[in-house]
Amino acid sequence: MGAGTVRAAGLSNVDGAQIRTAYEILGPRLVSVRNRFSPAHLSTRDTLGPCTELGLAFLPWSPLGGISRSAVDDPDAAGPAPDTPCHSPARTRGVSPQQVCLSWQLAQSSVAVPIPGARRPASVRDSAGAAGLHL
């Protein structure tokens, strides 16, 4: 490739029309879209369609946003675990709310690749368990 040539590009915080416009310009050099997306932040859910159709990786930022801390990820937390849409199914399945949240995102599209942050190795292992959880 020559100087000034874009090999691959990604977009962030865009809507479906912007994704399609960028794809018209970049073609297969457009490889990913990074939007905020979680069970508590569904406003970009409509961008999953264009990403899936065009084969673009959908990288949710803040994939656990809105999932409050629970006894699973904060052993020093006082009181019962909160009751959010991810906590109840997690209790039923004996897994963390984070696993339920990430598994739900993975099930939204074959191109969804949530990337949660983690402070502890146990959190990384827990998040990885979402890949094998089927809701």
Score class of each variant (00 low, 15 high):
residue 3 A to N: 10
residue 1 M to I: 12
residue 67 I to M: 14
residue 50 P to I: 00
residue 50 P to R: 00
residue 52 T to F: 00
residue 67 I to S: 08
residue 87 H to M: 10
residue 33 V to L: 06
residue 97 P to R: 09
residue 25 I to V: 15
residue 56 L to W: 02
residue 101 C to V: 09
residue 49 G to L: 05
residue 51 C to I: 00
residue 94 G to C: 12
residue 115 I to Y: 08
residue 2 G to I: 11
residue 36 R to P: 08
residue 102 L to F: 10
residue 106 L to H: 09
residue 38 S to E: 02
residue 92 T to S: 13
residue 14 V to A: 10
residue 65 G to Q: 13
residue 132 G to Y: 05
residue 25 I to L: 14
residue 39 P to Y: 11
residue 126 D to R: 08
residue 23 Y to C: 03
residue 31 V to F: 01
residue 65 G to A: 14
residue 66 G to P: 09
residue 100 V to T: 04
residue 99 Q to I: 02
residue 50 P to C: 01
residue 121 P to L: 06
residue 53 E to S: 03
residue 129 G to Y: 09
residue 43 S to F: 04
residue 5 T to I: 11
residue 45 R to H: 07
residue 25 I to Y: 07
residue 120 R to L: 11
residue 10 G to Y: 02
residue 21 T to K: 12
residue 26 L to R: 04
residue 124 V to Q: 06
residue 69 R to V: 14
residue 8 A to N: 03
residue 132 G to N: 04
residue 75 P to G: 10
residue 48 L to V: 11
residue 103 S to F: 06
residue 25 I to G: 01
residue 125 R to W: 05
residue 66 G to N: 11
residue 55 G to Q: 05
residue 133 L to A: 12
residue 33 V to E: 12
residue 15 D to T: 06
residue 134 H to A: 11
residue 96 S to T: 12
residue 30 L to C: 00
residue 127 S to A: 15
residue 20 R to S: 05
residue 106 L to I: 14
residue 27 G to L: 03
residue 134 H to G: 01
residue 83 D to M: 07
residue 71 A to L: 12
residue 5 T to H: 10
residue 124 V to L: 15
residue 78 A to R: 07
residue 14 V to M: 11
residue 93 R to M: 11
residue 131 A to H: 06
residue 90 A to Q: 07
residue 24 E to Q: 14
residue 78 A to K: 04
residue 117 G to W: 11
residue 128 A to Y: 10
residue 80 P to F: 03
residue 12 S to Y: 08
residue 53 E to N: 03
residue 13 N to G: 13
residue 121 P to R: 08
residue 127 S to K: 02
residue 18 Q to T: 12
residue 115 I to K: 09
residue 32 S to R: 01
residue 53 E to Y: 00
residue 85 P to N: 08
residue 110 S to W: 03
residue 104 W to Y: 13
residue 61 W to G: 03
residue 30 L to H: 01
residue 18 Q to M: 09
residue 125 R to D: 13
residue 15 D to N: 15
residue 105 Q to A: 15
residue 47 T to I: 00
residue 65 G to F: 08
residue 13 N to E: 15
residue 65 G to K: 09
residue 116 P to R: 04
residue 40 A to L: 09
residue 50 P to E: 01
residue 129 G to A: 13
residue 123 S to H: 15
residue 49 G to F: 00
residue 40 A to I: 06
residue 28 P to D: 14
residue 47 T to G: 00
residue 88 S to N: 06
residue 61 W to M: 12
residue 47 T to R: 00
residue 54 L to Q: 03
residue 60 P to T: 08
residue 59 L to P: 01
residue 84 T to W: 06
residue 55 G to C: 09
residue 104 W to E: 06
residue 31 V to Q: 02
residue 69 R to Q: 14
residue 98 Q to H: 11
residue 84 T to V: 07
residue 111 V to Y: 07
residue 5 T to L: 11
residue 134 H to L: 05
residue 119 R to M: 07
residue 37 F to P: 01
residue 60 P to R: 13
residue 124 V to W: 10
residue 81 A to I: 01
residue 54 L to K: 04
residue 37 F to T: 02
residue 69 R to P: 05
residue 125 R to P: 02
residue 71 A to N: 14
residue 109 S to D: 11
residue 115 I to C: 05
